[in-house]
Design a binder for these strands. Structure first.
Lengths: 199, 199
DNA sequence: GTCTATATAGGGATAGAC
DNA sequence: GTCTATCCCTATATAGAC
């Protein structure tokens, strides 16, 4: 667990560059465009070298997913100690860069078992962290945790943020302004329920 | 507009079968597996025939999207006259069959302009219908439409339903029970605000 | 660790017979 | 409307030189 990366004294970062090139191509042109040739070209190496580092293309995709997940989880853990943890989580989840790549992996996961399993594991770890953040904030605000289960509130925040990110990526913005205003009001409510306004 | 399909006396449904085969393969194995050869095989015709009906593969994908959109929009318009329109919309949006295909098209849309444009147009028509349904119900219930803009509520319902469908497809169920309970409570509240309970 | 070269498969698309 | 046959390109993956 201490050395998740290659233990070798490691090249000149070729492995890392291959992973980054793959992520970039998936983001720009979709997973179907992430071929060994395209990836090698972007990383500045020859095609066959991809197979030196990754036995199959699935191994490479899996590694892209794992590295991205590690980064995302680190960001989320950091969000736990932010001034406004919930808003920080919202910001992380709405980032179109993240949502586009996530969509690619979800599509991949729908027909490649190993990727589906990894994505599932990642999604659950994310949910746990987000639920922890929401629990913390709600408890501090004295909100009834039985009436509003933190895990459900965490899902609500994360899912809608991601959905907005996805829509932005496609160019859909109808209703976004209204939605963001609604979110703002309720984020404020979560952190400071004394200011509650009702319908 | 009266004849969205081929005006010819039409074959024996070959065109339709090609579209259905494509949708099925995209659902089962992802868009990358939807090749002219695979599609032809599933439809029981030879590969070259695909190009008789559709000049390029993108034309075929576009047609799959359009037909699917037409069906979905029809379902949603029908939901407007249902006993509980909001719940009907929730049910339509949570269907994993729909969300999986939608994910494939979103991934496709990220790098094929024509598909992105069509998906955007479709998403906006869906939003309009859903907003109409929500407006209707909220108005009937006497809920403050300024405090809770119907378009935002419509987004909330549709997006979270789709997110749950996506997660089900990957096998993630953590928090779903709590979330569904929360939704149930608020759907009831939407249609019958007199039963309001607050935090 | 990186390369060249190649095996093998499958892709989109077209020409032309029936 | 459907077929056979084919062009040309790109894919994953491996073998072996350097």
């Amino acid at each position: 667990m201490a050395t998740p990366r290659k233990s070798k004294a490691d090249d000149g970062g070729t492995r890392r560059r291959l992973i980054e090139a793959t992520a970039q191509i998936m983001y720009d042109d979709g997973y179907a465009a992430a071929t060994s040739r395209q990836i090698a070209a972007k990383a500045g190496v020859k095609q066959a070298l991809v197979y030196y580092y990754f036995p199959t293309m699935d191994d490479l995709f899996l590694e892209v997913l794992k590295v991205g997940a590690d980064v995302a989880l680190a960001q989320m853990r950091k969000a736990l100690t932010a001034d406004d943890p919930i808003r920080a989580l919202w910001q992380i989840n709405i980032d179109p860069r993240r949502t586009v790549l996530n969509t690619e992996f979800m599509a991949l996961a729908n027909h490649r078992k190993v990727i589906g399993a990894e994505l599932k594991a990642y999604a659950e770890r994310v949910r746990d962290i987000e639920t922890a953040a929401v629990t913390m904030v709600m408890r501090a605000s004295g909100i009834d945790l039985d009436a509003y289960p933190p895990v459900a509130i965490a899902m609500l925040i994360a899912q809608t943020a991601r959905s907005l990110g996805n829509e932005l990526a496609v160019g859909v913005t109808e209703g976004h302004e209204e939605f963001r205003a609604l979110v703002e009001r309720h984020l404020a409510l979560l952190s400071n329920p004394s200011a509650a306004v009702r319908s």
